[in-house]
Every structure is written in structure tokens, then in C-alpha cells.
Design a protein around this nucleic acid. Structure first.
Lengths: 266, 266
DNA sequence: CGACACCTTGAAGAGGTTCAAGAAATGTGG
DNA sequence: CCACATTTCTTGAACCTCTTCAAGGTGTCG
């Protein structure tokens, strides 16, 4: 079954809302697209399914939802109902504490899944904020679980997505726990550009969707340090930086900075 | 069905090994214990199951495996077959990189599940090392997935375990990204003692299973800083420290250190 | 008991932060 | 469409936290 329901409203989390209608005001972004022929399929859905399994997978997405730049998809405390596959746009997820601390826990782009934090306690513990106008596929978790019980490949896929997130966070812990500012920023840039490249964008040019402060929060640095480190990389001819426009001139140099671990030789 | 197979050897990962026999050399730790009447059940297994579901759950554990202090349960690169529920003992998990970096990603105790990192790429990306003699239940992941498709409560439970790990790591990111040394160590102590207390141990006394260096790696600090911070807490009468023996004298003070976030008032 | 691993403490130094000021970009309203 | 307000970014200087290096103490295990 195709997913054809547009995001009806900002509160559009009604998982089992009417489906199969195509309102006339639907714009080009809301054209019928099934998971089975979505061009992000290889990013967010399992591969190698049989046709009848593919049909079932298409039922995972209940609705779409648009999120304007600066708006939140979900916030700390919201009850958990769904995972979200990002179709377009760019998000940050962050946690905030009572005493005013704030930590960006990740930046997510098209094809990535957010909302996994909500499963354990049936409510979200972080905020997901769109850093540019975005659209997500709303996938009610009950339905994911139901279909996972029927389609082993989907089950395995869901497990892999969660495991991947765990492994990613291990990498962030390594970064935060053992890297110096230059190493952190180099690793950050390489990671971003690699993910963008996997989506068909340039290997060397990128537009940062987040502020220096958000980068700093993610990397455990102050915004001034991020800015200074960008300037240093620019002086050394490794990157060209014009505000949020970054061109990587020497990828190898960045890799060296990350790997060559300038610790005094143990 | 009860799990009665003792860990036959260090290579004891044969998931479907012969079961139902009880060799005469089996010691008290290897006595028949089914998940359904394991005293760690509420920590590692779902609650509120029907009897027939409980019977199935008991099939999850294929074997037990003992791990001596200092030995690894699995290492980076090992192929992934199973998750492990810790029955007794204490583990650390850490990642190591080619350039010699090392990051402890967690400390795990009885009732906790390790091995989730291996799901995504079918091999492990971190090392699990026993910090004291330990025993784990080996749960072949294929079997977990199979049973999850039949028992929705188990499926939900597995999802919650993975989500919990993601949320835990968010907390570590907050710690590493935004806390000062004292805050990190205070948060670490509170977390440890809280988990120990949930297992029936003291609220105020604990025996550290890991070295200062391992604590430091986890907290993103050098071992000297960990040591100094312990000394500082001791001077202030917040804790009593004798090597690895720690007695918390003022839990509230620790909480204040973590929450009261001595940043200059924003 | 001696070797080894682990822990503590001091002093000097480095890396990152804080505070401050100004420049550049972005958004808004007339 | 321009002027103005706001946000974001850059850069400098002083400061502080944590690290580094070093030495000695403590505990443990064969």
C-alpha cells in the first residue's frame, strides 16, 4: 500500500489517520511516494525484500510531517509514539537539564532515523529541532513492532539502526573523551562531508546548517574555540571558510589531524 | 525449558550446544537457574509475561560462560553472535583505535546486557573486559530475534534495552561535553552507587572495580585528575577514600556538585 | 620479600575558556 | 528596497582548569 497522506498539521501524529486520499492542495513535496520506491530507501529501509514484504513495509509510514526551520519535531517529555525518518532537511537533537546545561547529541540528515531515545520510557528525553525546513516520515512505533514480528528483515533492520546509533555514540564518546579541539573539529568535518557525499553531495564542499555554538556544544567546545579552530585550519590552507560555507582543500590533512594523535609518544 | 549448560570453555559460544545435562563437576554457580526464576529477572527480562511466554523466554539463554578477571568476553573485530546478560561480576567496555587512543565506553554490572554494538555490522567494535571474575548468560541473537517475533513483550523489552543504552550514552555525552572534573566524578559516583543500590548493595559504600586510569578514560580525564578530585572530595568531607574503597558521607553535596552547575550565571 | 601495578601529590605548562569588542551576515519593518 | 536591529562570527588578552612530568608512597601477588 502506498503512503499518500500528507502531514495534515503540526500536530499530525495521528498514526492511523485516514489514508489513501490525496487532497487537492497537496504540493509537489507531498506527491505519492511509497517507501518501496523512495529514493532514500537504501538509507532507511532494509534491502533484498520480497515483493509481498515490500508491500508491508510501505505500511510503516503513516503520515508525513513538515517541520519549519527552528521548530521542534519532538521535545523532552513528549510522549513517544513514533520514529521519524528524515526525508528532507536537517535536524539537531539535544538534551537540556534543569540546571541549564545543554548538549547537542547529534545532527541528522535525510535518510536518518530519529526518536529512538523515546522507546525506553515511552516519552522523549531529548529535543529534535529542525535546522532547516524539513519533512519527516512518521512511523508509529506500534506499527513498526507489529510488522517487525512478521517481516524478519525489517526486524533485523530496526535492530541495526539502534545498534548503529549506539556505535555512533561510542565514537562521540571517544571524540569527547580523548581528542583535542583540532582533532574534534577535523573529525566532525570529515564525518559530515562523508555523510553528505553518501547522499550525492560534494566530497569537499559543505554548507553548515548549524551555528558555531551548536557545533561547539556537540564537540564539547566553546563557540570561540570552534571559530578559532576554523581560522587555524584556514590559515594552514586545509579548509576555506566563509561563515557557514566550508570547502575542504586538503582532506588528507584533516585525516592526519584525527589519526595522528599528537600525544607525546606514549 | 531450563538452562542447565555450564560454560564448557573459553570458546563456549556454541549457541545450540547440547543442553539438559548437568556434569558432576558443576559448581554452585552453575546450578540450574532458569530466567523465569533467576533473581536478576526484573533487571534483564520483561515482566508480566504469561506462563507459556515465560517458558519460551527460558530458551533465550543457550549457555553460561565464565570470564576470569582481566579476560575479555569479546573484542573488537570478533564476529557477533550473541548478547550477554551479566549474572555476576563487573565489566568495562572500551574502544581502541589504530592510533592508540582508548576510550572506556561503560562499566556494566549484574543484570545488564552487553554486546549491542555488534548487531549493526555483525562484528563487535569494542572490547568487553571482566574487571572481576564474572559469569554471563550467552543469548544467541538469532534466537532472541526469533523469539521476539513470537513474544511481543520480549520484542518490546529488547527495544527498550537498546533505547536505554542510547539514552545512557546521551548522559555520558552531556557529562563529557559540559561538565568539569568534579562534576564528572560526582556524577560517576552517584550513578555507580545508585545502580549498586538497585542490586541490594549499600547506598553509601562501594568498592571500585576499576583503576583510576579506567575511571579517567570513561570520564575524559587523566588518572591524576581523578585522584586529585577524590582527594579534594575527601578533604571536604564528602567522601572517604581508601584506594578503591569509597564511602559517600554526603550524597547531597555530590548532587549539588552535579546539578548546581557552577557556570557564571549564564 | 621483592617485583609490579596502582595511587597520590607537587610544580610547571598548555590548551581551552572567559570576557570583551567589533565585524559580518541576516532578518524585519517601514 | 533600504535602514536598523539582531544574531552570528571573529579576534585579542587574561585567566583557569586540567595535563604533563616527576617522584615517592601504598598495596598486592607470586
Amino acid at each position: 500500500m502506498l503512503d499518500v497522506t500528507p502531514s495534515p498539521s503540526e500536530t499530525g501524529l495521528q498514526a492511523h489517520a485516514a489514508r489513501g486520499t490525496k487532497p487537492s492542495f497537496m504540493n509537489s513535496h507531498e506527491i505519492k511516494v511509497a517507501c518501496s520506491n523512495c529514493n532514500l530507501r537504501e538509507l532507511c529501509m532494509p534491502l533484498g525484500l520480497r515483493p509481498e514484504e515490500l508491500d508491508k513495509i510501505d505500511e510503516v509510514v503513516a503520515t508525513r510531517r513538515k517541520v519549519k526551520r527552528g521548530a521542534t519535531l519532538f521535545s523532552n517529555g513528549d510522549s513517544f509514539t513514533s520514529l521519524y525518518a528524515i526525508r528532507t532537511g536537517f535536524f539537531k537533537t539535544c538534551i537540556t537539564t534543569a540546571d541549564g546545561r545543554d548538549q547537542v547529541t547529534g545532527f541528522q540528515m535525510a535518510g536518518e532515523i530519529i526518536g529512538l531515545d523515546g522507546i525506553v520510557n515511552d516519552h522523549h528525553t531529548c529535543n529534535a529541532v529542525a535546522l532547516e525546513d524539513a519533512e519527516v516520515c512518521v512511523m508509529p512505533f506500534d506499527r513498526i513492532e507489529e510488522l517487525s514480528r512478521e517481516v524478519a528483515a525489517l526486524q533485523r533492520h530496526v535492530h541495526k539502526i539502534m545498534s548503529r546509533e549506539i556505535v555512533r555514540e561510542h565514537g562521540v564518546m571517544l571524540l569527547l573523551g580523548s581528542m583535542r579541539a583540532e582533532e574534534r573539529l577535523a573529525a566532525f568535518l570529515l564525518n559530515l562531508v562523508q555523510r553528505l557525499h553518501a547522499r550525492g553531495f560534494s566530497k569537499s564542499e559543505l554548507l553548515l546548517r548549524m551555528t558555531r555554538e551548536e557545533i561547539g556544544s556537540y564537540l564539547g567546545l566553546k563557540l570561540e574555540t570552534v571559530s578559532r579552530t576554523f581560522s587555524k585550519f584556514a590559515e594552514e590552507g586545509i579548509v576555506e571558510v566563509k561563515q557557514r560555507h566550508v570547502r575542504i582543500l586538503n582532506t588528507e590533512a584533516l585525516k592526519l589531524i584525527v589519526n595522528n594523535n599528537q600525544q607525546p609518544c606514549q
